[in-house]
Nucleic acid binder design. Structure first.
Lengths: 343, 343
DNA sequence: TACATTTGTTTAAACGTTTAAGCAAATATA
DNA sequence: TATATTTGCTTAAACGTTTAAACAAATGTA
């Protein structure tokens, strides 16, 4: 009862030729006659032949599969990156296997094992927040397949990286807030151990200095940047003796939490406190007031990551270097921080 | 320079035993001595042995890969379903390959081909809006691997299906609106050719009848349910001679578009017009006013889909039937339709 | 006509596993 | 002691491709 799959041999026996000839015909080899090719294609069609990837990948040593590891897929940023990676790679005959780390180091290690086991030709990854031990990533490198990091990267791995200029983004934001008359700017940041959040924090500090603004420890906090974190940190900021007149949040979800608190406390936005998020998640444009945020060029990041992988395809020896592609982020100014239009 | 991967043979030659023995040792075969097993595991560790999935899958005929096809991953519903599918399947040693159809029939066909080519052991899918020709799905069935549909299904395929009770959800919504004093309820629906949207429309019509409300053609529209569609259809409804006092939108994104229009026109929600969405996307709880919506039990759907697949694993002959698992959806009442709390 | 090249195909090995079958040695059974 | 069973391994084939090497036939060249 089990359905027998048609193989190259079945086609061969129908036409009384060798399996090798069939294989070559299907690959349009120049040494196969046009007549045979047409016949092979015809029979393949009739028998509903489906090439077996496992066999060809095993034989050729190329699986034409690329692993993609992201913290989660349900943020607009990551799903947009993925979509663009897929688009570029599909055109070149590659499929992608997506795995989510859920920000867990353990899950990330498992994912890497699964991907290596599946014999992917390369891995494109954005690291989990938790990840500090790089051995799992070293393992990828040791297998001799290309590893491309994006957004959440790590210099020490010495591989290609695509991301935005986080340090400079903070400058843009602080500058914008200063222009809007803010003088006491707080930062609800991510964990410093994650490079991108560290860069945002450094940028924040340096930008304050540049504009001769007070650098107050109590205005700078670290968290996981969930909605709840945003609420909690905002409440803390409000309980200070001197409240900030602007809050720059390193993630949109946390910015949303902060926004909720401000609204509940009937604090006017942006008049009393201006708010800027990071990531330009679609909801920042949906809530009231709309939240200013930083657009991360997710589509571009995805495309560049895919192209970087393709650069290595066909190379015998993969010798990767720390090669950073840094895109300029764009600040999207909306109601939550724009005092000028609300005049 | 190319890095040589360690194989089972390398381990065998180190220990001076056969490759078969190594294979069995790694699979904990009872006919291999404990001593050998320990030695094998030790050497495997030392040589950084990574089993080759392609080879084992080819030989055993089981790839332990499951394909998942969704319209897109960036909705909360789909990413939650995926996450739960992955969770259940990972525990049983399966990995998933996710592909997005982007609501395109062509892309869906390509995805199916890629998945079959990759020799997945089964496919879990939610169909694209565009899809009417079922031949690509018939092809999956003809390969003798299980096909599980969720959310966007099709009876004619005679396979397992997991979804919510769309027809009844419409009843819940209409009932809720009637209880809130609404008498002229419009429906911004999806395309009737998609079964779930058809069911929502049928439910809407029948519920109106049940409550002896006018069934007015101009109150019932079809669209792709994007934000833009929601805006357009809402504007149409507002231009009617007698405006509705409630709008039931079959998708949250379109509901958001409708909400934007209502706010722009300074129409009070829910007093002048009550609004209900569908899908319980996180942003429905973020916007002002918060949008009432229907929770689709995405986690449960994912788990059930995965378990349904697992049911077929190990069966020689897959003989699928139209077997529907229908979950009860839950109406989450929020500000946009709740007149009682605003009294 | 003799030799070289091109064309179209076949043969056979290989990719890294798994697994049925076989077999010798060790152990148990009578 | 002779026979049966168990233990621990080996051998060899198979999974469905790809591909290097070989080769006969057809065609080109001198």
């Amino acid at each position: 009862m089990k359905k027998k799959k048609t193989t190259i041999k079945d086609i061969a026996s129908v036409l009384n030729i060798s399996a090798a000839a069939v294989s070559k015909a299907l690959h349009n080899d120049s040494r196969i006659s046009e007549k045979t090719k047409i016949a092979v294609r015809q029979v393949a069609e009739n028998l509903q032949y489906q090439p077996n990837h496992l066999a060809s990948a095993l034989r050729s040593g190329k699986s034409h599969l690329v692993g993609v590891i992201v913290p989660r897929t349900n943020s607009n940023f990551f799903s947009s990156v993925i979509q663009n990676i897929e688009e570029v790679l599909n055109k070149k005959g590659y499929s992608i296997i997506i795995t989510q780390s859920n920000e867990s180091y353990q899950k990330e290690c498992d994912s890497i094992d699964t991907l290596l086991y599946t014999q992917v030709d390369g891995i494109i990854a954005s690291m989990a927040n938790e990840t500090v031990d790089l051995s799992a990533y070293e393992k990828i490198k040791s297998k001799g397949i290309p590893l491309i990091l994006f957004d959440r990267g790590e210099n020490d791995l010495n591989v290609d990286y695509i991301g935005i200029d986080d340090y400079n983004s903070s400058h843009l934001i602080v500058e914008h807030l200063v222009e809007n008359g803010c003088k006491r700017i707080a930062h609800i940041g991510g964990y410093k151990r994650t490079r991108i959040f560290n860069n945002r924090i450094r940028g924040y500090i340096d930008a304050l200095k540049k504009h001769h603004l007070p650098l107050d420890d109590e205005l700078l906090t670290e968290s996981g940047l969930t909605i709840e974190d945003g609420r909690g940190k905002m409440l803390e900021l409000l309980s200070l003796d001197t409240q900030p007149d602007a809050v720059y949040v390193a993630g949109d979800y946390a910015a949303l939490g902060a926004l909720q608190v401000l609204k509940e406390k009937n604090i006017r936005i942006p008049e009393d406190i201006a708010l800027v998020g990071f990531g330009n998640e679609p909801f920042t444009d949906m809530v009231t007031p709309r939240i200013s945020s930083v657009h991360q060029h997710s589509a571009e990041i995805g495309k560049q990551a895919a192209n970087t992988f393709l650069k290595y395809v066909g190379q015998d020896a993969i010798d990767q270097q720390l090669n950073k592609i840094i895109l300029n982020a764009e600040l999207i100014v909306r109601d939550s921080s724009n005092k000028k239009t609300s005049l």
